[in-house]
Simulated scan of single mutants.
Amino acid sequence: MKIGQKLRKLRMADSLTQEELASRADLTKGYISQLENDATSPAISTLKDILDVFGVSISEFFAEPHESQVVFGKDSTVIATEEDGIRVELLVPGAQNRTMDPALITLQAGEAMEEQSLHEGEEFGFLLSGRIELTLDDKAYMVKKNECFFFPSDQRHAVRNIGSGVAKILWVVTPPTFEYKGK
Rank of each mutant, 00 (worst) to 15 (best):
L7R: 00
A13K: 15
D14P: 00
D14V: 02
Q18S: 13
A22T: 00
A22W: 04
L27T: 00
L27S: 09
N37L: 10
N37K: 14
T40S: 15
T40N: 12
S41L: 08
S41T: 13
A43G: 09
S45V: 12
I50A: 03
D52S: 15
F54N: 04
G55K: 09
E60K: 14
A63Q: 15
P65G: 06
E67M: 12
S68H: 14
F72Y: 15
F72L: 06
K74E: 14
I79G: 04
I79H: 04
A80Y: 15
E83C: 08
I86G: 01
Q96N: 11
Q96W: 10
L104G: 07
T106K: 14
L107F: 08
S117N: 11
L127E: 00
L127G: 02
I132P: 02
E133T: 13
K139A: 11
V143P: 03
V143E: 02
K145Y: 04
F149V: 09
F151W: 07
F151C: 04
F151A: 01
S153A: 14
R156M: 12
R160T: 11
I162H: 05
V166C: 05
L170V: 02
V172F: 05
F178S: 08
K181M: 13
K181Q: 09
K181Y: 12
K183D: 12
